[in-house]
Design a protein around this nucleic acid. Structure first.
Lengths: 216, 216
DNA sequence: GCAATAATAAAACGAACGTTCAATTAATTC
DNA sequence: GAATTAATTGAACGTTCGTTTTATTATTGC
């Protein structure tokens, strides 16, 4: 009938966020109804509007925070005083780890862009572009200093990001490959792709050849 | 009012298919209404049901035919009596050309899988797996004969397909790069990625180095 | 030109949608 | 322990959805 015993706004909001990410990832934003989300949370649909004014605002919040978290993770993972190969290695490691850990949120951020209003879409795309720009800068630097040999840095950056993000499509934790094995193989493919010199390549991977990934 | 002057079933069906691919690619399957589609075709919503029994059957038809066309295109493009590098080169060329040419249909086939019933989803995934299997076989052969040097053929196949299909996300005809330039650069990246030997690499690319792509 | 058939319109169906509003109860404050 | 605030319910609103039914007109075959 009304306020329920033990109800807590903060907890409810966190539960909504979590349930929304999972439901949208599974069903898609348009296919998920507010009533379905409410049922998952264990609440009536009207209660959701205490935390998010509209369905689209809920989607936008999930996406914006995901992009913010990605930027924060990269800032923390970015090594100081590192050469091109080390920077690229750190970028790849962080990207794969982050996206595997947040498969559902990534799925939402990649697939539901068209459900955003133009202004909100621009906001998210700007954050995404800023993140991709970091990779382009690493590739350009490496190409100029001779650490890499790249035909087209812009195109290569897009190819790398699509290749890495694609992991979430097929990767399932606990199956044939571990996260460490996948990361090592992707690092190997990345270094080959950018034409990294052997020295730079080895320096960025001090733990042996890719074939030994299982030893991680 | 009823049957309109000059109306023709075959033409109407073709128009529906075309409009549906474009609308679904732009708005998403769930967001596109049958009334919207009908308006685009220039017909009342009820008329659509003369050609497709349900909305989902329409989606499935678009996807199935897209996958059939992809398989057919590869059969035609596949060279006989070719070595691993030539086979891989043909696969990459065909994949990129096909997907750029049918950006919208590819978008639909990749993004709207979750709107299919389990049986129809299985059907489409089976076709997709069969197509990907061809690439895995090429990579395995090349690795065994020494033409390539690959850590994990399954993982590499997925990475390559995601990288190549990703083209449709950012490529716009008539902008900075031509299809030929994009294809050449992707070929170069692919050959590096699989660790192709220089000989096999050059043999598959008789028109010079990737940097010369603009001359195409 | 008349019968048969193909192609469409117009209207309606029930169900589901996002959202709002008033009422109600739990927790907090003083 | 009364007043205030926080959290939620239940019912309802108008709209839109996919789909069906019935009637009507254009085209085709004889």
């Amino acid at each position: 009938m009304a306020r329920t015993a033990g109800s807590d706004g903060e907890k409810t909001e966190a539960t909504i966020r979590e349930a929304a990410v999972n439901l949208i990832a599974r069903l898609g934003y348009e296919a998920m109804s507010m009533r379905q989300l409410a049922a998952e949370v264990g609440v009536q649909a009207a209660a959701l509007y205490r935390y998010f004014p509209t369905k689209e605002e809920l989607l936008f919040t999930l996406m914006r925070e995901h992009m913010e978290d990605l930027a924060t993770a990269w800032e923390a993972a970015r090594p100081a005083n590192a050469d091109s190969a080390q920077l690229l290695s750190a970028y790849v490691r962080n990207h794969i780890a982050f996206h595997i850990e947040r498969r559902h949120a990534t799925h939402v951020s990649n697939m539901e862009l068209r459900s955003l209003s133009p202004e909100r879409l621009t906001h998210i795309l700007r954050m995404r572009t800023a993140y991709e720009k970091e990779l382009r800068a690493i590739l350009r630097d490496g190409d100029e200093t001779g650490a890499f040999s790249i035909d087209d840095t812009g195109l290569t950056a897009m190819a790398l990001i699509q290749m890495m993000t694609g992991v979430i499509v097929w990767f399932r934790p606990g199956e044939r490959l571990s996260i460490a094995e996948v990361t090592t193989t992707y690092l190997s493919m990345t270094m080959r792709l950018v034409g990294a010199t052997i020295d730079a390549y080895s320096a960025a991977r001090p733990f042996g050849r890719a074939k030994d990934a299982a030893a991680f």
